[in-house]
Structure formats: structure tokens, C-alpha cells
């Protein structure tokens, strides 16, 4: 074997193992969103509990937090307490709105879920799943933050707990409500 060949073999192996090492910390299921900075797709749909129609357009000029969930989803139960806490924290702010979006679910199951775990805000049913596709959703829970101009500013896949909660409230929602650019 020539020196060059030996050298490139060693470099190749090192690169490969570095790549594998890096890969261990990724999640093969996560898909980075391409929606940050684009206008939030509008939607209308029935409220899970009352059945009345809710539209995103109603909340123009406000900071909107969308939380996609389903009654069959385990991680949604994990984050539910914190989601309620988050609503408590900001609900008195005139420019803040929170909407749950019930995804791939049966209406009775969804109603039962909300009764069991409690709810303080409105939830829209995504009956055909087209709303979820509009938002590039592939698993629940997924959370989006839309600013006063109707632009998607933040997305998180997975439960909003611990560090994620702190980051979302302090670095995303609060600055948006204060009209200062968020620092994520």
C-alpha cells in the first residue's frame, strides 16, 4: 500500500466514525421545518367542545401559539400540564392567543381527553388532516408560534417541558409580545 492510500484510508475511517458519532445525537424522525419566516397558512375548523367555527383570521394582529395534539399520543399527555401552565402564564395578555389543534382523532376520544386532563383554551378539529399538512406536521405534539404579522416564528416537535418550556416562553413568546425580535 502506498503512503497516500494509507493516509486516505485512515482519514476516511476517522471521518466515518465521526459521522456516526454525530449521528447518535440526532433523531432520525425529526424533520427540520422549512416554514420559519413564512406566512402562517390560514384555516377554519370546528371547535372540539362546542362545534362552533374557529378561524385563524379571527386572531390577526396577535401572537398565536398552535399546539397540535391527539388523544392517542403519549407525549401529548406528558406535556399537557405544562401546556396548561403556559396558557395560565400568558392568558391575560391581550395580544396572546393559544389554540389546540386536534389531529387524526375521533371526536368522542378528543372530548374525553379534554375532560380528563382539563382545558382552558379552544381546540380546533383538523378533520381531514389538511391543516396538519399545511403546517408540515408529521407527528404530535408539535407547537408553532405565529407573530402579530401572521408569520411563523418558531416550531418545536415534541413535548414542551423543562428546558424547552423555558426557552419557548422566555426567548420566543415574551419578546414577541414585547414587540422585540425573538432570540432563539
Amino acid at each position: 500500500m502506498s503512503r497516500g492510500l494509507q493516509f486516505s484510508l485512515v482519514i476516511g475511517l476517522l471521518a466515518l466514525f465521526a459521522l456516526f458519532y454525530q449521528g447518535l445525537w440526532g433523531d432520525p424522525r425529526s424533520i427540520p421545518t422549512v416554514l420559519i419566516g413564512t406566512t402562517a397558512p390560514t384555516f377554519t375548523g370546528p371547535d372540539v367542545e362546542s362545534g362552533q367555527t374557529i378561524s385563524l383570521d379571527q386572531y390577526k394582529g396577535k401572537v398565536v401559539l398552535l399546539n397540535f395534539w391527539a388523544s392517542w399520543c403519549y407525549e401529548c399527555k406528558v406535556e399537557h400540564k405544562d401546556i396548561l401552565r403556559l396558557h395560565q402564564q400568558f392568558k391575560d395578555h391581550p395580544n396572546f392567543v393559544m389554540l389546540g389543534i386536534n389531529y387524526q382523532d375521533e371526536l368522542p376520544d378528543a372530548k374525553k381527553y379534554l375532560k380528563t386532563y382539563g382545558s382552558t383554551f379552544q381546540h380546533v378539529r383538523d378533520i381531514k388532516g389538511s391543516l396538519a399538512i399545511d403546517y408540515g406536521v408529521y407527528g404530535v405534539p408539535e407547537t408553532f408560534v405565529i407573530d402579530q404579522q401572521g408569520v411563523i416564528r418558531h416550531k418545536w416537535v415534541g413535548p414542551i417541558v423543562g428546558q424547552v418550556y423555558t426557552n419557548l416562553t422566555e426567548n420566543v413568546i415574551t419578546p414577541l409580545l414585547n414587540n422585540t425580535p425573538p432570540s432563539t
Binding site: 424522525r29 424533520i31 387524526q104 381531514k128 388532516g129 389538511s130 396538519a132 399538512i133 408529521y138 407527528g139
Partner: peptide
């Protein structure tokens, strides 16, 4: 199909794939 392992939404039976097919049709 974004929730499957290298399967297209035609071959997959996952709910998301079904909805995506419906979206294409619509």
C-alpha cells in the same frame, strides 16, 4: 411518507399517508 421508513405515501398505510393522498386528490 414522513412518518415511515423510506416508504412513499402510495405504499404506506399510515394515517398521514392516507391524508396526504386525499390532499393530492383534492
Amino acid at each position: 411518507c414522513t412518518v415511515c421508513q423510506t416508504e412513499n405515501i402510495w405504499e404506506s398505510g399510515a394515517p398521514l399517508a392516507v391524508q396526504m393522498r386525499a390532499a393530492i386528490r383534492e
